[in-house]
Structure formats: structure tokens, C-alpha cells
Amino acid sequence: MRPELTEAQLLSVWETGDGQAPPARALLLAAAAAAPGEAVADLTLADLNALLLDLREGSFGAALPCAADCPNCDEPLEVSVTTDELRAPGRRNVPGPRRDPATLLAEGYEVTYRALTGGDLLSVDPASPEARRTLLSRCVVDTTPAADDLPEGVLETVAQRLADLDPGADTVVPLTCPYCRHAWTAALDVADYLWAEVEGYARRLLHEVHTLASVYGWSESEVLAVSPARRRFYLAATAV
């Protein structure tokens, strides 16, 4: 069964996450979709994306309308992608198989590394000029010979291997421009997309609560107890 936000839960999530950094909002949304007590900060990015896609599908549907500009001819495009197209194979409703740390050889180092987690993103200041290096360094479990400060080239090799270690950590959409036929892939940040929808819905809902509370004297909980279809009728009646 897909997780689904009730309107009351949606308002609570929005209120808690409003003003927080994107990684914190992503973990907040994932926690709303996770099993009780699950430590979402310890999940890999692919598992987090799987939870977010399930929550999005259960709360807003499977189709995600998107807009993009062709990088070749600058034509604006409207496209739609589904949650299944973004979801990595096997990542639906349950976390994918756990990946053990992997090992690579680069520039004379044997490096054991693991997949990135939500907690890693949360711990790094994205505004720092060293953010990328810090994030990649967190993936390194061990090195031979031992090194506290690996060369840049070694860390970039680790970065290139992370996608193979955790398929689904990056969500991309293949696109083809209907005007010039240029083909490319565009990244889609599932957490940012879902948060924008949650925020938009929350603000519209609060306006509905304000209007109906002002006209009928209902409390917020009483307004939320009314179905969206009936609320639309009452809102239309207030405008008469």
C-alpha cells in the first residue's frame, strides 16, 4: 500500500520543514513515507528516492508534469514523466537490496567506499567551497595506504563509481526536442519537486481554512474534516 499524506499530515510536514535546508526537507518527507521508527538518515539516496516517489504517487498521483528548455535551440518544452520511469528497478514500497562497500584502485590507493546517505547530505554545508570534497570523503570507509586527505583524482574516481553502487540515487529524465531533435538527459530532484507540491497545497489549504473559518466560524480541524469536494462548494457559496 502506497503511503499517502492526509491534509492534516501535509500541513504538519510543511510547517516543520518551512525554512529548512533541502536535505532536511527531503528526510522529513521520507520519514512521512517510511515505516515507523525507520532511520531515514541512514538510508542510501536511492532508497530515499524510492520512499519519496511512493509518497508522491500516493498523495498526488503517478504523473509528474515538468518543463525544460532545449539546450540546443532554447525552445521551452512541456513533458510528463511517471514515478515508474524515475524509480530504479526493484525500488517500490520497500528499500532495495543493501549494497556492501565496494573497492577500487586509483593513483596507487586501494579505496573502500560506500553509498551516500541522507545523513551525509544533511551534515555538509552546500554553500561551502569544499562541500563536494567533504561529501565524497564521507563515502570513503578505508584506504591502503592510509590517508586522511586523498588526492582530488581519487575522490573523483569514487564519485564516478557511486551510481553503480547505488542505482537510483540520481533521477534523470531522457528528453528529445521535437523541434531540433536534440536528445539529452535532465536531472529531476524528487525531493525538491515533491516539496514544491506540498508547499503549494499547504498554502492553498490554509487560505481555504481562513475563508471558511471566517464565514462559518469553523475551527481548522472542522474545516479539514470536510472533504475537498464539499469545501469547494462552500468556498463557491461564499463568493456568491
Rank of each mutant, 00 (worst) to 15 (best):
H182C: 11
W195M: 12
D192Q: 15
Y179P: 02
V158T: 07
A186E: 14
G153C: 05
D189W: 01
V172Y: 07
L155G: 06
D192I: 11
P174I: 04
H182R: 14
G153V: 11
V173F: 01
P178V: 12
P167E: 02
Q160N: 15
E156L: 15
E199R: 14
T185L: 08
P174N: 11
T171R: 05
L194A: 05
G153H: 07
R161L: 09
Y179E: 11
R181S: 15
Y179G: 10
E197C: 07
V198A: 08
A196H: 12
V172K: 10
P174A: 06
T171S: 06
C180Y: 02
L194T: 07
T157K: 14
G168P: 05
A159W: 10
L188S: 12
A191C: 02
R161P: 08
A163P: 09
A169Y: 01
A191G: 01
V173A: 06
L162V: 06
A183R: 15
V173G: 03
D164A: 13
V172H: 05
T185E: 14
Y179A: 13
T185I: 11
A196W: 09
D170F: 03
A159S: 13
H182F: 12
W195G: 09
D192R: 15
A191Y: 06
L165A: 02
A169P: 04
P174D: 03
P178C: 11
E197A: 13
G153S: 13
T171Q: 09
P167G: 01
P178M: 06
C177M: 11
G168A: 02
V172A: 09
T171G: 01
W195F: 08
L175R: 00
D166L: 01
A169V: 00
D166G: 00
E199H: 13
W195H: 10
D164E: 15
A163L: 05
L165M: 02
C177D: 04
T185G: 05
L155H: 05
A163Q: 10
L194P: 09
V158Y: 06
V190M: 05
V198I: 12
V154W: 03
Y179C: 12
L162A: 03
V154Y: 03
A196G: 12
P178T: 04
P167V: 00
A183M: 12
D189Y: 00
D192M: 09
L165C: 07
P178N: 11
T157A: 14
C180K: 09
E152N: 04
R161T: 09
Y193S: 10
T171K: 00
L165N: 00
G153N: 13
P178K: 07
L155R: 01
V172N: 12
W195C: 11
P174F: 01
A191D: 06
V173T: 02
R181K: 15
E156C: 13
A159N: 08
V158E: 08
V198N: 05
Y179H: 14
V190T: 04
V190S: 01
Q160G: 13
E199A: 15
A159K: 09
A159I: 13
D189K: 00
V158R: 00
G168H: 00
E152H: 12
P174S: 06
E197H: 12
W195A: 08
